[in-house]
Write a protein that binds this DNA or RNA. Sequence first.
DNA 1: TTTTAAATTTATAATGATTATAAGATAGTT
DNA 2: AACTATCTTATAATCATTATAAATTTAAAA
Lengths: 139, 139
Amino acid sequence: MNQKIDNLAKILIEKNIKPSYQRIKILEYLLNKKNHPTVDKIFSDLVKEIPTLSKATVYNTLDLFKEANLTRIVTIENNETRYDAKVSSHGHFKCESCGSIFDFEINIDSFLTDSLEHFKINGKNVYINGICPGCLQKD
Amino acid sequence: MNQKIDNLAKILIEKNIKPSYQRIKILEYLLNKKNHPTVDKIFSDLVKEIPTLSKATVYNTLDLFKEANLTRIVTIENNETRYDAKVSSHGHFKCESCGSIFDFEINIDSFLTDSLEHFKINGKNVYINGICPGCLQKD
DNA sequence: TTTTAAATTTATAATGATTATAAGATAGTT
DNA sequence: AACTATCTTATAATCATTATAAATTTAAAA
Ligand SMILES: [Mn+2]
Ligand SMILES: [Mn+2]
Ligand SMILES: [Zn+2]
Ligand SMILES: [Zn+2]
Protein backbone atom coordinates (compact mmCIF):
# COMPACT_ATOMS: atom_id res chain seq x y z
CA MET A 1 0.00 0.00 0.00
CA ASN A 2 3.02 2.21 0.35
CA GLN A 3 3.62 1.02 -3.15
CA LYS A 4 0.26 2.53 -4.06
CA ILE A 5 1.19 5.86 -2.54
CA ASP A 6 4.54 5.75 -4.32
CA ASN A 7 2.76 5.24 -7.61
CA LEU A 8 0.52 8.21 -6.97
CA ALA A 9 3.52 10.27 -5.96
CA LYS A 10 5.26 9.30 -9.18
CA ILE A 11 2.32 10.48 -11.22
CA LEU A 12 2.52 13.86 -9.53
CA ILE A 13 6.28 14.16 -9.79
CA GLU A 14 6.14 13.45 -13.49
CA LYS A 15 3.94 16.48 -13.82
CA ASN A 16 6.26 18.59 -11.67
CA ILE A 17 3.80 18.64 -8.80
CA LYS A 18 5.20 18.08 -5.33
CA PRO A 19 3.49 15.04 -3.86
CA SER A 20 2.09 16.40 -0.63
CA TYR A 21 -0.16 14.22 1.51
CA GLN A 22 -3.27 16.20 0.54
CA ARG A 23 -2.48 16.08 -3.16
CA ILE A 24 -1.88 12.35 -3.08
CA LYS A 25 -5.15 11.77 -1.25
CA ILE A 26 -7.12 13.89 -3.66
CA LEU A 27 -5.58 12.17 -6.66
CA GLU A 28 -6.22 8.78 -5.08
CA TYR A 29 -9.83 9.74 -4.48
CA LEU A 30 -10.36 10.76 -8.09
CA LEU A 31 -8.72 7.65 -9.48
CA ASN A 32 -10.54 5.21 -7.19
CA LYS A 33 -14.05 6.55 -7.07
CA LYS A 34 -14.86 7.15 -10.64
CA ASN A 35 -17.88 9.20 -9.75
CA HIS A 36 -17.58 12.70 -11.12
CA PRO A 37 -17.40 14.54 -7.85
CA THR A 38 -17.92 18.18 -7.06
CA VAL A 39 -15.46 20.00 -4.83
CA ASP A 40 -17.95 19.67 -2.01
CA LYS A 41 -18.18 15.91 -2.42
CA ILE A 42 -14.41 15.49 -2.48
CA PHE A 43 -14.02 17.69 0.56
CA SER A 44 -16.76 16.13 2.68
CA ASP A 45 -15.51 12.63 1.92
CA LEU A 46 -11.83 13.32 2.51
CA VAL A 47 -12.25 15.46 5.60
CA LYS A 48 -13.25 12.30 7.46
CA GLU A 49 -9.78 10.95 6.82
CA ILE A 50 -7.94 14.28 6.95
CA PRO A 51 -9.69 16.35 9.65
CA THR A 52 -7.53 19.41 9.05
CA LEU A 53 -8.27 19.50 5.33
CA SER A 54 -9.36 22.84 3.97
CA LYS A 55 -11.72 23.35 1.10
CA ALA A 56 -9.29 25.88 -0.33
CA THR A 57 -6.73 23.10 -0.68
CA VAL A 58 -9.20 21.06 -2.68
CA TYR A 59 -9.79 24.00 -4.98
CA ASN A 60 -6.07 24.72 -5.30
CA THR A 61 -5.19 21.11 -5.93
CA LEU A 62 -7.85 20.54 -8.55
CA ASP A 63 -6.73 23.66 -10.33
CA LEU A 64 -3.17 22.38 -10.28
CA PHE A 65 -4.29 18.99 -11.61
CA LYS A 66 -6.30 20.63 -14.34
CA GLU A 67 -3.32 22.66 -15.52
CA ALA A 68 -1.20 19.51 -15.54
CA ASN A 69 -3.88 17.66 -17.50
CA LEU A 70 -4.24 15.11 -14.72
CA THR A 71 -7.95 15.87 -14.47
CA ARG A 72 -10.48 17.66 -16.53
CA ILE A 73 -13.63 19.54 -15.71
CA VAL A 74 -16.84 17.86 -16.73
CA THR A 75 -19.22 20.53 -17.92
CA ILE A 76 -22.66 19.17 -17.27
CA GLU A 77 -24.82 21.58 -15.39
CA ASN A 78 -23.61 25.11 -15.02
CA ASN A 79 -23.86 25.38 -11.29
CA GLU A 80 -21.91 22.35 -10.21
CA THR A 81 -18.35 21.96 -11.44
CA ARG A 82 -17.36 18.32 -11.55
CA TYR A 83 -13.94 16.75 -11.90
CA ASP A 84 -12.82 13.66 -13.77
CA ALA A 85 -9.46 11.90 -13.61
CA LYS A 86 -10.23 10.13 -16.86
CA VAL A 87 -8.85 12.65 -19.31
CA SER A 88 -9.17 10.54 -22.43
CA SER A 89 -11.93 11.50 -24.80
CA HIS A 90 -15.34 10.22 -23.73
CA GLY A 91 -18.91 11.41 -23.30
CA HIS A 92 -21.09 11.79 -20.23
CA PHE A 93 -24.68 10.86 -19.53
CA LYS A 94 -26.50 12.32 -16.54
CA CYS A 95 -29.67 10.67 -15.28
CA GLU A 96 -32.35 13.24 -14.49
CA SER A 97 -33.91 10.90 -11.97
CA CYS A 98 -31.07 9.60 -9.80
CA GLY A 99 -28.40 12.13 -10.73
CA SER A 100 -25.79 9.50 -11.60
CA ILE A 101 -23.25 10.30 -14.25
CA PHE A 102 -22.20 7.59 -16.68
CA ASP A 103 -19.21 7.54 -18.99
CA PHE A 104 -19.68 6.33 -22.51
CA GLU A 105 -17.27 5.78 -25.33
CA ILE A 106 -17.64 7.78 -28.46
CA ASN A 107 -15.85 8.22 -31.71
CA ILE A 108 -15.54 11.88 -31.05
CA ASP A 109 -14.12 12.76 -34.44
CA SER A 110 -16.87 11.10 -36.41
CA PHE A 111 -19.38 13.85 -35.81
CA LEU A 112 -17.25 16.78 -36.78
CA THR A 113 -18.69 18.41 -39.82
CA ASP A 114 -17.10 20.43 -42.57
CA SER A 115 -18.38 23.58 -40.92
CA LEU A 116 -15.48 23.45 -38.48
CA GLU A 117 -12.74 22.74 -40.98
CA HIS A 118 -11.06 26.12 -40.50
CA PHE A 119 -11.20 25.99 -36.71
CA LYS A 120 -8.40 24.78 -34.47
CA ILE A 121 -9.96 22.30 -32.08
CA ASN A 122 -8.49 21.93 -28.61
CA GLY A 123 -11.20 20.15 -26.67
CA LYS A 124 -14.46 18.34 -27.15
CA ASN A 125 -17.37 17.83 -24.81
CA VAL A 126 -20.40 15.63 -25.27
CA TYR A 127 -23.07 15.59 -22.64
CA ILE A 128 -26.37 13.76 -22.81
CA ASN A 129 -29.20 13.84 -20.32
CA GLY A 130 -32.10 11.48 -19.85
CA ILE A 131 -33.09 8.49 -17.74
CA CYS A 132 -30.75 5.64 -16.92
CA PRO A 133 -31.75 1.96 -17.31
CA GLY A 134 -32.07 1.46 -13.56
CA CYS A 135 -34.48 4.34 -13.15
CA LEU A 136 -36.44 3.31 -16.25
CA GLN A 137 -37.27 -0.02 -14.63
CA LYS A 138 -38.72 1.61 -11.53
CA ASP A 139 -41.65 2.98 -13.56
CA MET B 1 -43.08 46.83 -36.84
CA ASN B 2 -46.24 46.41 -34.83
CA GLN B 3 -46.56 43.39 -37.02
CA LYS B 4 -43.23 42.24 -35.64
CA ILE B 5 -44.42 42.70 -32.07
CA ASP B 6 -47.64 40.88 -32.89
CA ASN B 7 -45.63 37.96 -34.19
CA LEU B 8 -43.57 37.81 -31.05
CA ALA B 9 -46.72 38.06 -28.95
CA LYS B 10 -48.21 35.18 -30.90
CA ILE B 11 -45.20 33.02 -30.18
CA LEU B 12 -45.65 33.66 -26.49
CA ILE B 13 -49.42 33.17 -26.48
CA GLU B 14 -49.02 29.84 -28.23
CA LYS B 15 -46.92 28.76 -25.27
CA ASN B 16 -49.46 30.11 -22.79
CA ILE B 17 -47.17 32.94 -21.78
CA LYS B 18 -48.77 36.35 -21.40
CA PRO B 19 -47.01 38.70 -23.80
CA SER B 20 -45.87 41.47 -21.50
CA TYR B 21 -43.66 44.24 -22.82
CA GLN B 22 -40.61 42.88 -21.02
CA ARG B 23 -41.14 39.34 -22.24
CA ILE B 24 -41.60 40.47 -25.83
CA LYS B 25 -38.43 42.54 -25.67
CA ILE B 26 -36.39 39.70 -24.21
CA LEU B 27 -37.67 37.26 -26.81
CA GLU B 28 -36.99 39.78 -29.56
CA TYR B 29 -33.46 40.24 -28.25
CA LEU B 30 -32.75 36.52 -28.28
CA LEU B 31 -34.18 36.02 -31.75
CA ASN B 32 -32.39 38.99 -33.31
CA LYS B 33 -28.98 38.87 -31.78
CA LYS B 34 -27.94 35.33 -32.21
CA ASN B 35 -25.10 35.74 -29.80
CA HIS B 36 -25.45 33.39 -26.85
CA PRO B 37 -25.91 35.99 -24.16
CA THR B 38 -25.61 35.72 -20.43
CA VAL B 39 -28.27 37.20 -18.19
CA ASP B 40 -25.98 40.12 -17.56
CA LYS B 41 -25.54 40.82 -21.26
CA ILE B 42 -29.28 40.71 -21.90
CA PHE B 43 -29.95 42.96 -18.95
CA SER B 44 -27.28 45.56 -19.66
CA ASP B 45 -28.31 45.79 -23.31
CA LEU B 46 -32.04 45.98 -22.71
CA VAL B 47 -31.93 48.34 -19.75
CA LYS B 48 -30.89 51.07 -22.18
CA GLU B 49 -34.27 50.70 -23.85
CA ILE B 50 -36.25 49.78 -20.74
CA PRO B 51 -34.77 51.84 -17.89
CA THR B 52 -37.04 50.29 -15.27
CA LEU B 53 -36.06 46.75 -16.19
CA SER B 54 -35.04 44.52 -13.32
CA LYS B 55 -32.54 41.72 -13.52
CA ALA B 56 -34.98 39.52 -11.65
CA THR B 57 -37.37 39.89 -14.57
CA VAL B 58 -34.71 38.67 -16.94
CA TYR B 59 -34.09 35.63 -14.76
CA ASN B 60 -37.83 34.95 -14.38
CA THR B 61 -38.50 35.35 -18.08
CA LEU B 62 -35.65 33.13 -19.20
CA ASP B 63 -36.81 30.47 -16.79
CA LEU B 64 -40.30 30.72 -18.22
CA PHE B 65 -38.95 30.49 -21.76
CA LYS B 66 -36.86 27.50 -20.87
CA GLU B 67 -39.86 25.64 -19.43
CA ALA B 68 -41.81 26.44 -22.58
CA ASN B 69 -38.94 25.25 -24.75
CA LEU B 70 -38.63 28.65 -26.36
CA THR B 71 -35.01 28.84 -25.35
CA ARG B 72 -32.42 26.47 -24.09
CA ILE B 73 -29.43 26.85 -21.87
CA VAL B 74 -26.07 26.52 -23.56
CA THR B 75 -23.71 24.77 -21.20
CA ILE B 76 -20.28 25.92 -22.18
CA GLU B 77 -18.35 27.09 -19.20
CA ASN B 78 -19.74 26.34 -15.80
CA ASN B 79 -19.76 29.83 -14.46
CA GLU B 80 -21.61 31.68 -17.16
CA THR B 81 -25.06 30.47 -18.07
CA ARG B 82 -25.90 31.37 -21.63
CA TYR B 83 -29.21 31.32 -23.44
CA ASP B 84 -30.08 30.35 -26.98
CA ALA B 85 -33.36 30.86 -28.82
CA LYS B 86 -32.31 28.29 -31.40
CA VAL B 87 -33.65 25.16 -29.76
CA SER B 88 -33.03 22.79 -32.63
CA SER B 89 -30.17 20.38 -32.26
CA HIS B 90 -26.79 21.93 -32.97
CA GLY B 91 -23.32 22.18 -31.52
CA HIS B 92 -21.34 25.09 -30.13
CA PHE B 93 -17.77 26.19 -30.59
CA LYS B 94 -16.18 28.70 -28.27
CA CYS B 95 -13.03 30.52 -29.31
CA GLU B 96 -10.52 30.67 -26.48
CA SER B 97 -9.00 33.81 -27.91
CA CYS B 98 -11.89 36.14 -28.69
CA GLY B 99 -14.62 34.40 -26.70
CA SER B 100 -17.05 34.22 -29.59
CA ILE B 101 -19.48 31.34 -29.75
CA PHE B 102 -20.27 29.75 -33.09
CA ASP B 103 -23.12 27.42 -33.95
CA PHE B 104 -22.37 24.43 -36.09
CA GLU B 105 -24.59 21.78 -37.57
CA ILE B 106 -24.10 18.22 -36.53
CA ASN B 107 -25.79 14.91 -37.05
CA ILE B 108 -26.14 14.45 -33.37
CA ASP B 109 -27.36 10.88 -33.56
CA SER B 110 -24.45 9.65 -35.62
CA PHE B 111 -22.06 9.54 -32.71
CA LEU B 112 -24.26 7.66 -30.28
CA THR B 113 -22.80 4.29 -29.56
CA ASP B 114 -24.41 1.07 -28.47
CA SER B 115 -23.37 1.76 -24.92
CA LEU B 116 -26.38 4.02 -24.51
CA GLU B 117 -28.96 1.73 -26.07
CA HIS B 118 -30.83 1.15 -22.81
CA PHE B 119 -30.86 4.81 -21.83
CA LYS B 120 -33.74 7.18 -22.51
CA ILE B 121 -32.21 10.26 -24.12
CA ASN B 122 -33.87 13.62 -23.58
CA GLY B 123 -31.20 16.09 -24.56
CA LYS B 124 -27.85 16.30 -26.25
CA ASN B 125 -25.05 18.80 -25.91
CA VAL B 126 -21.90 19.13 -27.94
CA TYR B 127 -19.39 21.78 -27.08
CA ILE B 128 -16.01 22.29 -28.68
CA ASN B 129 -13.35 24.77 -27.75
CA GLY B 130 -10.36 26.03 -29.69
CA ILE B 131 -9.39 28.95 -31.91
CA CYS B 132 -11.64 30.43 -34.53
CA PRO B 133 -10.44 31.17 -38.10
CA GLY B 134 -10.36 34.91 -37.50
CA CYS B 135 -8.08 34.59 -34.50
CA LEU B 136 -5.91 32.00 -36.25
CA GLN B 137 -5.04 34.55 -38.93
CA LYS B 138 -3.87 37.12 -36.40
CA ASP B 139 -0.90 34.92 -35.51
C1' DT C 1 21.40 20.41 14.51
C1' DT C 2 19.86 25.12 14.19
C1' DT C 3 18.59 28.71 10.88
C1' DT C 4 16.48 30.35 6.92
C1' DA C 5 13.69 30.52 2.93
C1' DA C 6 10.29 28.63 -0.09
C1' DA C 7 6.26 26.10 -0.76
C1' DT C 8 1.96 24.45 0.94
C1' DT C 9 -2.01 24.47 3.71
C1' DT C 10 -5.36 26.65 6.34
C1' DA C 11 -8.78 30.06 7.95
C1' DT C 12 -11.24 33.77 6.64
C1' DA C 13 -13.00 37.49 3.87
C1' DA C 14 -14.61 39.13 -0.64
C1' DT C 15 -16.90 38.49 -4.86
C1' DG C 16 -20.45 37.42 -8.00
C1' DA C 17 -24.19 34.76 -9.91
C1' DT C 18 -28.48 32.98 -8.78
C1' DT C 19 -32.62 32.36 -5.89
C1' DA C 20 -36.08 33.85 -2.59
C1' DT C 21 -39.20 37.14 -0.70
C1' DA C 22 -42.26 40.72 -0.34
C1' DA C 23 -43.92 45.13 -1.87
C1' DG C 24 -45.53 47.85 -5.88
C1' DA C 25 -47.48 48.18 -10.56
C1' DT C 26 -50.35 46.54 -14.28
C1' DA C 27 -54.20 44.49 -16.68
C1' DG C 28 -58.50 42.33 -16.86
C1' DT C 29 -63.20 41.49 -14.49
C1' DT C 30 -67.37 42.41 -11.89
C1' DA D 1 -64.56 52.25 -9.46
C1' DA D 2 -63.26 48.23 -6.73
C1' DC D 3 -61.41 43.71 -6.86
C1' DT D 4 -58.25 40.07 -8.14
C1' DA D 5 -54.70 37.79 -10.31
C1' DT D 6 -50.49 38.38 -12.60
C1' DC D 7 -46.27 40.51 -13.46
C1' DT D 8 -42.44 43.44 -12.29
C1' DT D 9 -39.37 45.42 -9.25
C1' DA D 10 -36.22 46.12 -5.33
C1' DT D 11 -33.89 43.93 -1.97
C1' DA D 12 -32.10 40.33 0.90
C1' DA D 13 -30.34 35.61 1.28
C1' DT D 14 -27.70 31.85 -0.42
C1' DC D 15 -24.00 29.42 -2.26
C1' DA D 16 -19.93 28.37 -5.10
C1' DT D 17 -15.70 30.22 -6.14
C1' DT D 18 -11.73 33.32 -5.66
C1' DA D 19 -8.57 36.19 -3.06
C1' DT D 20 -5.70 37.20 0.85
C1' DA D 21 -2.86 36.64 4.56
C1' DA D 22 -1.38 33.94 8.51
C1' DA D 23 0.26 29.39 10.04
C1' DT D 24 2.46 25.17 9.03
C1' DT D 25 5.39 22.12 6.66
C1' DT D 26 9.30 21.01 3.81
C1' DA D 27 13.76 21.47 2.05
C1' DA D 28 18.09 23.68 1.83
C1' DA D 29 21.92 26.26 3.94
C1' DA D 30 24.89 27.29 7.55
MN1 LIG E 1 -15.95 10.64 -17.15
MN1 LIG F 1 -26.59 28.12 -30.65
ZN1 LIG G 1 -31.00 6.98 -12.82
ZN1 LIG H 1 -11.66 33.97 -32.06
